[in-house]
Design a binder for these strands. Structure first.
Length: 279
DNA sequence: TGCCAGGCGACGC
DNA sequence: GCGTCGCATGGC
């Protein structure tokens, strides 16, 4: 399954992109590191092996589309500048410093939608396991041994019995609903990308099994709407404990979603849920 | 073993 | 509009 890295291309400097943080901060679920620290993943049917060495981010050059991957890692913008306003409260500044190097990936909207439907009321190891099984069962195997994410058309043709091996419980119904909405044209990602943030949110929010949290995750990670601020149990605890009462994420501006990612990553890395006094 | 997890929908008030 | 409950499953 591990691909040998041959001719290497430089994708970025490590000061711009921290692979471990970016892949393990909770925004995506399909990248994994092998024993030598090389991360392997598949995006939109394209496989990549990527690693850090001597201050550089190197990727496998064999059929590697560098512009595609630079776009995926959102390397065209300055994250230091975007996170400049994240200085209050002090907890946010600490989270931003801790998360330096995280980039909000430009993920496939379809994969992001299904991934965050699966994420609901679930822990991250189990989310990864369910998505991995989904891809192994219904995706296509690539020469490197990894699987593509199954298309909406593939999933829309299934029923809940076919999804039983995923062991995803009540979420199976929601996955099928989303797949059928895409196939019917009721949900069109190209159209959504033209909508305002509020309109696109309302549109995806109409689907069964997609509430505020999943819709916001889809907006942020699937449509790259950086103003969205998903609030899950970890965020709720952090906000209640470290932020002023009635704190409105809107004051964080256009990049509130990045602040959210820093907070989530810090909280999940450093704080156990049972040592916080909040409910 | 029991608590919890990147929630949501239905229901009662 | 708001609080509560059941939902399916398994990581820890």
């Amino acid at each position: 399954m591990q691909k040998t890295m041959k001719t290497e291309n430089v994708l970025a400097f490590v000061t711009e992109l921290d692979l471990k943080k970016t892949f393990e901060c909770g925004q995506c679920f399909r990248w994994s590191a092998d024993e030598s620290g090389v991360y392997h993943g598949v995006v939109c049917g394209k496989a990549l092996a990527i690693r850090e060495e001597n201050g550089l981010i190197l990727c496998d050059a064999e059929d590697t589309d560098i512009p595609f991957w630079r776009d995926y890692f959102d390397l065209g913008v300055d994250y230091v500048e975007m996170s400049g306003p994240f200085i209050e409260p002090p907890y946010l500044e600490m989270c931003a410093n801790f998360g330096r190097g995280i980039r909000i990936l430009r993920q496939d909207p379809w994969e992001a939608l299904i991934s965050f439907i699966i994420s609901q009321c679930n822990n991250i190891p189990r989310i990864k396991k369910i998505i991995s099984t989904l891809c192994a069962c219904f995706g296509e195997e690539l020469p490197c041994g990894l699987f593509t994410f199954p298309s909406a058309y593939k999933l829309a043709a299934l029923d809940e019995t076919a999804l039983a091996p995923l062991r995803c419980g009540y979420r199976a119904e929601y996955i099928l609903c989303a797949a059928r909405a895409v196939v019917s044209g009721e949900l069109n990602f190209d159209k959504l990308s033209q909508f305002s943030s509020e309109d696109a949110f309302a549109e995806v929010r109409r689907l069964r099994g997609i509430g505020d949290k999943v819709a916001n995750c889809f907006m942020l990670y699937g449509l790259h709407r950086m103003d969205r601020f998903p609030i899950d149990v970890w965020m709720k605890r952090a906000l209640e404990r470290y932020f002023p009462k009635n704190f409105d994420p809107k004051i964080l501006g256009l990049y509130a979603g990045l602040a959210q990612q820093y907070i989530f990553y810090y909280a999940r890395t450093n704080e156990r849920s049972d040592n916080l006094e909040c409910s």
